[in-house]
Design a protein around this nucleic acid. Structure first.
Lengths: 116, 116
DNA sequence: TAAAGTAGGAACGGAAAAGTAACTGCCTAT
DNA sequence: ATAGGCAGTTACTTTTCCGTTCCTACTTTA
C-alpha cells in the first residue's frame, strides 16, 4: 500500500522536506553556513535534540547535508549543506517568495485556511 | 508553541503541500486539467473520499484550486488549478526534476535513506 | 565535589493525522 | 425492485509522529 504512487517522485522529496523542522534546518545551514549541533539547536528555537538528531540523520541519509565529526574529547560535530542541499536551496527560495506573496495576500490568515 | 517560527514562511506553504496526497492531486490537476470529484478519485489511486475531500477543501481554502458546483440532480463538482496553483506548478516541476535526478542517483533507495 | 557543556541514544506517552467503514439523498439503468 | 453512481459526511479505529524526560561518557570550570 504505497502512499506515494511511484509516478510522483516529488512526493518522496516532499516527504523528506516535510517535517516541521526540516526546511528550517536547511534554511539555517544555508543562511548561516555550517553549524555544530549545539549551535544548530540554538538556532532552531524550540526543537528537541531528538528531533534535531532525527532530521539531521535523515537529511544526511539523503545526502542533503554532510556531517563532520572530530574525535576530540568533547566531540565536535559540524553539519553543512552538500551540493544536493544547494539544489534544494533554490527551490526553497522560490517557494519562500511565493509563500511571502501569498502571505501578503492573506492566504495563511486563519479565517481563510483555518476555517472554510 | 508555534512549530513554524514566523521567520520561515515557506514552512507554512510546505505544510499545505505536505500531506501524503496533496502534491499528487495538484499534479493530476495540472497534468490532466480540471477534473470532477470521482475522476480525481480514480486518478489518485488508493486515496479515500475522506482524504480527497479534506485535501480539496484545504487547497481550495488556500486558493490553490477552484471548485465549481453545478446544482444538477446528480451534482457535478469540478476542481481545477487557480493561477495560484499554477505558481506552485513551476516549483513542483523543478522539485520533480530534482527528485528524478536524485532517484537516478539512488537517494531514495532503502539502503541509503532507510538505513544510515 | 558538583554543575554544565558536548553530541546524542532509549524509552515513554499523548495528540494529531490518516485509514476504514457506513451512511446520506437523489437519480438512472437493469 | 435493486444496484450503482454522484459527492460527499460522520463516526470509529489505528498508526504515526512528536515532545519530554532521563541516560551516556568525558572534561572543564566554579
Amino acid at each position: 500500500m504505497p502512499k506515494t504512487p511511484p509516478q510522483c517522485p516529488m512526493d518522496s522529496i516532499l516527504r523528506l522536506l516535510m517535517g516541521p523542522w526540516t526546511t528550517y534546518i536547511i534554511w539555517v545551514l544555508s543562511d548561516q553556513g555550517p553549524q555544530r549541533f549545539g549551535a544548530l539547536k540554538r538556532a532552531v528555537p524550540g526543537i528537541s535534540t531528538r528531533m534535531l538528531t532525527e532530521r539531521l540523520r535523515m537529511l544526511q541519509g539523503a545526502g542533503v547535508i554532510w556531517r563532520e565529526q572530530k574525535q576530540t574529547i568533547p566531540p565536535a560535530v559540524t553539519y553543512g549543506l552538500t551540493s544536493r542541499g544547494n539544489d534544494l536551496r533554490g527551490v526553497l527560495d522560490t517557494l519562500g517568495h511565493i509563500a511571502e506573496r501569498w502571505k501578503d495576500e492573506g492566504v495563511f490568515a486563519e479565517d481563510e485556511v483555518g476555517t472554510a
